[in-house]
Design a binder for these strands. Structure first.
Length: 651
RNA sequence: GCCGUUGUAGCUCAGGGGUAGAGCACUUCCUUGGUAAGGAAGAGGUCAGGGGUUCAAAUCCCCUCAACGGCUCCA
């Protein structure tokens, strides 16, 4: 073992240090300021404590608050601090897991019946900061499995024992700070003094190990920062994000509503929301015509037998809306939970030739699913919703090409609506849980490789998730985030070899033999409801001009100009410009304010001058006065403003 | 479905064992005003629904429903 080791820093420079040097000491040798900010270090690709000795030539990256891994370490250590504070305040509680998350961390605790709620947050925050000020060091201690078990048996923590059960002897470490010791792989920040601001965000129930058969623990969510100001900024941003919540804006802008009387999860689309929704549908219809789709319509209910055939009844029948009975004994119908079985039956209305394929059937199909009551969430999770659904029936040799075309369509839709922040997820079946799915291994492998190859061919950056497939086939899902960072699936493309089997779909090949087509299920928006929810949150209700429910507001200065206002408004309507004519007995300042609040893109202000000259005074929302124009000029100006999105580039 | 929180006027919210409150919105009247709130008056609530405790319940307790934050689920 040599006395000196060579440390390679991220800039490529190599320095020599005594064997056993710590990352913190390396930082110190560079600058004291850096050393004060080092939270952890990445040594040869592995994040570890900055205080651990390094004993071989290594590549070292010092991690601070500015690094994702630095933050994660900071929050992981904060979880231990939270646990320490909770244990001091609520002796005898037991601990589950306490990991960092995207924004902060949580700790799952079993309070054993003790009460913990919002009023107690401050107390815990203060305790955390009090302990943090003691600059308690995080001490790493490798320990044998037997000793570890003995420790938690003595302490009486069944959850830690459950965790230990799955760990191998020789890999187990404890971390201690102050009076708190936890089973933990680490790494941690050097000491608690880095934590200068703490905020408990909320508490929620969470099943132990995420299994609903297990006991529900109390999950305490919190976030910490190295500076108070960063916490203040974060809380401010959070408040700003809440203003974009589609449930709030949907009410304020009169887009949609819910009624207890109608039922939970059953949205009522108000006139303005319907306007928006129809614009989106027309936009997609046009794109689909260009892409060779044909529109179909199918009923809202179907014979139960249809879903027995498809497999949906067996898979979801238990927790769906119950079958609809008729005067005829034994006759049962289901509220349509999916459009695909109907479309399969459309396929079967006549013999199909290989020349007919691909056959692309599209429908804005409204479906009903009995979502769990606790899952309902604004427009993003509802019980009655409309899918921009389509099913492509194609030959096996056409699957990849068709799949790629659909990827292009989805990307085109996202791009047209300014959705840039999405992730593409390849959702495969869980190989350890095959009984959840229908169909043979062979067909699944074919379908999965089709998706993987098509995504690769389009250069899509994807993440792969096992166990996220549909029961009949794998999917490529396009995920986006809402205002508060929650992930939702919008667009989806699915390859399916199974339903064609179940419905015994066939086509005649060039050799006059019968073959089985492949189905691609796809929905670029996913559902109109969820897509519009995200659109509202992304835009904050400031929709692109072509989607705005009200594009203009005509605002006469006083009653005297009512006739002129009517004339202008009519001319605009004749030119397909929609909006309203504000003839209320209010001052102009008031009318402007109300239009601004309603997020109307353009206001046309009319008074004596405008009437005399046959002009309109144009005001742009959020910007102000644009000066006066003739009506014809405004129409030209408007059409130019709307152009980029109204006439999207041909696919 | 599970854990927790919440439910008062159309909206945002205050109140809280003893006759239900504010601002905005709404209606009427006055005002005819030039780029983000003109003035006055009026109307509007079985305090989510049901049950219980009490001389008395919007207020305390229980149940149901709904919403919110998570968990689980998501064709």
């Amino acid at each position: 073992m040599s006395d000196q080791i060579r440390i390679t820093l991220p800039d490529g420079s190599v320095r020599e240090y005594p064997n056993g040097v710590t990352s913190l000491e390396i930082a110190m040798s560079i600058s004291e300021g850096l050393a004060r900010n080092v939270l952890a270090a990445k040594v040869n690709g592995t994040v570890q404590d900055a205080t651990r000795p390094i004993t071989t030539d290594s590549a070292v990256t010092l991690l601070t608050w500015n690094d994702t891994e630095g933050k994660a370490t900071f929050w992981h250590s904060s979880a231990h601090l939270l646990a320490e504070a909770l244990e001091e305040l609520y002796p005898g509680i037991q601990f589950g897991i306490g990991p960092p998350i995207e924004k902060g961390f949580y700790y799952d605790v079993d309070l054993n019946g003790q009460h913990f709620s919002q009023e107690d947050f401050k107390k815990v925050e203060d305790k955390m900061l009090e302990l943090a000020r003691q600059k308690q060091e995080f001490v790493r201690q490798p320990i044998s499995k037997a000793e570890a078990i003995a420790y938690f048996e003595k302490k009486g923590d069944p959850y830690k024992l459950d965790l230990l059960d799955r760990l191998d002897d020789g890999t187990i470490t404890f971390y201690s700070q102050g009076n708190f010791t936890d089973l933990c792989r680490g790494p941690h920040i050097p000491h608690t003094g880095f934590i200068k601001a703490a905020k408990i965000m909320n508490v929620a129930g969470a099943y132990w190990r995420g299994d609903e058969k297990n006991k529900m623990l109390t999950r305490v969510y919190a976030v910490t920062f190295p500076k108070q100001k960063e916490l203040d900024d974060y809380l401010f941003l959070l408040e700003e994000a809440k203003k974009r919540d589609h449930r709030k804006l949907g009410k304020e802008l009169e887009l949609f509503a819910f009624s207890e009387k109608v039922g939970a999860g059953l949205p009522l689309w108000l006139p303005k929301g319907t306007m928006l929704r129809e614009r989106l549908e027309n936009f997609l219809r046009k794109a689909q015509v260009r892409a060779g789709y044909q529109q179909v319509v199918t009923p809202h209910i179907g014979s139960k037998q249809l879903y027995v055939t498809s497999g949906h009844w067996e898979k979801y029948g238990e927790d769906s809306f119950k079958p609809i009975l008729t005067p005829e004994p034994g006759e049962e119908f289901l509220l349509k939970p999916m459009n695909c079985p109907h479309h399969c039956e459309i396929y079967k209305t006549k013999p199909r030739s290989y020349r007919d394929l691909p056959l692309r059937l599209a429908e804005f199909g409204t479906v009903y699913r009995y979502e769990q009551s606790g899952e309902l969430h604004g427009l993003t999770r509802v019980r009655g919703f409309t899918q921009d659904d389509a099913h492509i029936f194609c030959r096996p040799d056409q699957v990849k090409e068709e799949f790629i075309k659909v990827i292009d369509l989805v990307l085109y839709v996202f791009k047209s609506l300014g959705f840039e922040d999405y992730s593409a997820q390849i959702s495969l079946r869980d190989p350890a849980n095959k009984q959840k799915y229908i169909g043979s291994d062979e067909l699944w492998e074919k379908a999965e490789s089709a998706i993987i190859e098509a995504s690769a061919e389009r250069g899509l950056r994807t993440v792969t998730e096992l166990g996220e497939a549909a029961f009949y086939g794998p999917k490529l899902d396009f995920m986006v985030r809402d205002a508060l960072g929650r992930k939702w699936q919008l667009g989806t493309i699915q390859v399916d070899y199974n339903l064609p089997n179940r419905f015994e779909l066939e086509y005649t090949g060039s050799d006059n033999q019968k073959y089985r087509p492949v189905m691609i299920h796809r929905a670029p928006f996913g559902s109109m409801e969820r897509f519009i929810a995200i659109l509202i949150e992304n835009s904050g209700g400031n929709f692109p001009l072509w989607l705005s429910p009200d594009q203009i507001a005509v605002l006469p200065i006083s009653e005297k100009y009512e006739d002129y206002a009517n004339e202008v408004f009519l001319t605009l309507q004749e030119n397909d410009i929609r909006g309203y004519n504000d003839l209320r007995d209010e001052k102009i300042g008031r009318k402007i304010r109300d239009s601004e609040i309603n997020k109307v893109p353009f206001m046309l202000i009319l008074g004596e001058k405008e009437q005399a000259e046959g002009r309109v005074s144009v005001r742009k929302k959020g910007v102000g006065d644009l000066g006066s124009m003739t009506i014809a000029e405004f129409i030209g100006f408007f059409q130019n403003e709307i152009k980029p999105a109204a006439q999207p580039a041909v696919l």
